[in-house]
């Protein structure tokens, strides 16, 4: 699709580019929701806006032709991670904690910093000529199959000429590492977040008297919920 053919004067609707439209829609939703996350003080609202932002991002992924990644974005992020976050919100949802206010001075400083960071990033985004060329608009093949093959070690997208002689490696090893990593993380998270036994008062005294000379004693005394050890 040649953009030279469509001038400003052309009919907006007749020549409406749906791809550009949906890009604007998702980008707008993502950005606005992200800003709302920043601006809202209520943690529950923050979570809602975050869901919106991430979902819109998934739409952007679809638009960029990365349908598998977009699907994963929806499933893992929106469906998994955010549910986890919402659980966290609910577990800690005490009234005084739901809306913790930030000092105004910090807001101002953060605003200035954000503006400068944004300026830098946007400047960088437009600094390379080739990045500003729009795509050919050619529909691309679905990426799920190449991705799946790449994750088990075969790069079907690279099966060409010289690569047969010296093939590029796939992502089998990183995939395995990430999977083991996830497993470890889940075990660790379960360990950290498990239900704690209430501390026996006598041992508190013992620890307190034993550590009375150390500054840690205040921590120990104040935290009567510290685990005595594994069950």
């Amino acid at each position: 699709m040649n953009h030279e053919a469509f001038g400003l004067s052309t009919n907006l609707f007749a020549f409406l580019d749906w791809h550009g439209f949906f890009f604007l829609l998702f980008a707008g939703v993502a950005c606005v929701a992200a800003v709302m996350v920043v601006l809202s003080d209520n943690v529950v609202r923050m979570a809602l806006h975050l869901v919106l932002s991430l979902g819109a991002t998934a739409g952007l992924f679809f638009l960029a032709g990365a349908e598998f990644v977009g699907a994963m974005q929806l499933m893992i992020y929106v469906g998994g991670t955010l549910v986890l976050l919402v659980f966290g919100v609910m577990l800690t949802a005490q009234t005084q904690l739901v809306a913790l206010r930030t000092p105004a001075g910090d807001r101002v400083i953060a605003g200035i910093l954000a503006a400068s960071l944004l300026a830098v990033l946007v400047q960088a985004a437009f600094s390379i000529e080739s990045w500003q060329k729009s795509g050919q608009g050619v529909a691309t093949a679905p990426t799920a199959t190449p991705l799946g093959m790449a994750l088990v070690g075969v790069r079907v997208d690279q099966v060409e000429e010289e690569n047969l002689v010296r093939p590029k490696s796939g992502y089998l090893l990183p995939f395995e590492i990430v999977s083991v990593h996830l497993l470890v993380v889940l075990v660790g998270a379960a360990y950290l977040a498990r239900a704690k036994r209430r501390r026996v008062p006598r041992s508190v005294d013992l620890v307190a008297s034993a550590d009375s000379t150390k500054p840690m004693s205040s921590v120990a005394a104040s935290s009567t919920l510290v685990a005595g050890g594994p069950k």
């Binding site: 910090d106 910093l113 960071l117 400047q123």
Partner: peptide
């Protein structure tokens, strides 16, 4: 923690600016 994050941002921006 928040202060640290701000420091990081300041540093990032500063590096970008300097590099630019």
């Amino acid at each position: 923690l928040r202060q640290y994050v701000m420091f990081i941002v300041v540093g990032t921006v500063a590096i970008f600016v300097l590099a630019t």
